[in-house]
Design a protein around this nucleic acid. Structure first.
Lengths: 102, 102
DNA sequence: TGACATTATGTCATATCTGACATAATATTA
DNA sequence: TAATATTATGTCAGATATGACATAATGTCA
């Protein structure tokens, strides 16, 4: 959320916080979750750019459609390892991963 | 792999790959391992920069000295998740992680 | 609308990762 | 050298992640 929107909401009486504050996460934990979310979103973006279904991607990485869905939904049972391995399978380079993380 | 087995797998919906694809997977795995190694080396670098022992770092991240040693040695039983969480605990930023990966 | 494709969610047994511990190996310092 | 500190390696039970499956939910198109 950008600062402008936050200010608008504050003015309307909303207490605007970060997801971290709401969930009671430490700064590190928040960074970890956000970083993972970035990977999740990028995985979906990359999959769609290749016009693949979740099922097709699942077969490519020897996983299942449900797990791909959870990856893209940033499910807490998904590890960064799995996200990275999946992105690499989709042809992502190290610098591409780096860009996604930064 | 013989054709019979390939046909069986195809029937089950598996995409059976060529040797080239197999090598491609190896390349991905290599990238994964190298990427993890970069994180491992950077963890050690960052720990030493703070003049911490493995035991001290272990306490910081609520782990054990042996696991820290394995992280720095790029032991295969270590996940990227653990490496990233450890680096974040040492104060690394997202861009710092990105730079390490790239 | 219905039929079909795609994605989302819950659950399970199994595999992998985890912290912890013991102890070996290697530094470091007196 | 010995004593101590630090790091490396092996192992374990418990925790977490995994692929698979069923099925619900949502989207798409005739």
């Amino acid at each position: 959320m950008n600062k402008k929107k936050m200010a608008t909401l504050e003015q309307r009486g909303w207490k605007v916080g970060t997801a971290a504050e709401f969930l009671g996460l430490s700064a590190e934990e928040a960074t970890y979750v956000e970083l993972k979310l970035s990977l999740a979103l990028y995985l979906q973006k990359k999959r769609k750019a290749k016009h693949m279904t979740q099922d097709q991607l699942a077969r490519l990485i020897h996983s299942s459609q449900s797990r791909v869905a959870k990856m893209e939904k940033n499910d807490p049972t998904i590890s960064i390892d799995l996200l990275m391995k999946s992105l690499l399978a989709l042809g992502a380079s190290r610098s591409e991963l780096a860009r996604t993380i930064s």
